[in-house]
């Protein structure tokens, strides 16, 4: 077979190639439109469950605020919002989202949506217990315990400080040395017994400089 190509054939081939190149180039230059065909994935199953396009409700702050108060029923222990935006294998949370959107769209307030959800699935599907009845203890006990212990501690310290002051006065001692050079914030730094008054004075001044 001869490898030669006639002039006409050559021109046709060259023209076709140029046209093809031009078309390819034009396609390449086309600004990424967001309107063109999306390429198909080689193995769609490897990219997880097929997703529906994001609807407006999925970014709706009111819906999200409701979802963050309700637990997903799939057993993940997460709220509906986190589950549907994190665990993409969950089939429950997208359906629960739709349910919440439908309840909201039917004119119910956020509290009513939550009540309707809990009435259907049970009170344990609220992310935190409603602060009423026994649950109120859940909220108040830690603070109350800390407050009670803190008050008891403060009273005990106050009583002891009064006792200590009284004992000091009775003993004729000077009241506890106030904060300042050689005491206070930096602790009681006693002047050595063998220090001369001048040395003690210089030490005090040095400490004053340190603390100033």
């Amino acid at each position: 077979m001869s490898g030669s190509v006639g002039r006409r054939r050559f021109l046709v081939l060259a023209g076709t190639a140029l046209a093809g190149l031009g078309a390819a180039r034009a396609a390449g230059q086309q600004p990424l439109p967001g309107g063109g065909e999306s390429g198909r994935l080689y193995d769609p199953r490897a990219a997880g469950r097929p997703r529906d396009p994001v609807g407006e409700s999925q970014n709706d702050p009111e819906i999200i605020a409701i979802e963050k108060q309700l637990k997903c029923t799939c057993g993940c222990n997460l709220d509906v919002y986190i589950c549907r935006t994190t665990d993409f294998t969950c089939t429950y949370s997208p359906a629960l989202h739709d349910e919440i959107v439908a309840l909201n769209a039917s004119g119910l307030s956020a509290d009513q949506v939550i009540d309707a959800y809990l009435a259907k699935y049970g009170p344990e599907f609220r992310m935190a217990p409603k602060p009423e009845g026994f649950n109120l203890a859940g909220y108040l006990v830690p603070g109350a315990v800390v407050l009670a212990a803190g008050t008891a501690l403060a009273l005990m310290l106050r009583r002891r400080s009064l006792v200590a002051s009284a004992a000091a006065v009775e003993a004729g001692a000077v009241a506890p040395r106030p904060a300042g050079p050689g005491g206070g914030a930096d602790g009681p730094l006693a002047v050595p017994a063998d220090a001369t008054p001048e040395e003690a004075d210089r030490l005090r001044r040095a400490l004053e400089e340190v603390e100033s």
């Binding site: 999306s38 390429g39 994935l41 769609p44 990219a47 097929p50 997703r51 994001v54 935006t85």
Partner: peptide, 14 residues
């Protein structure tokens, strides 16, 4: 950034 998945097995991504 979290890639949640694709729409209809295409490159259209959520």
């Amino acid at each position: 950034v979290v890639y949640a998945g694709s729409v209809g097995g295409t490159e259209e991504a959520v």
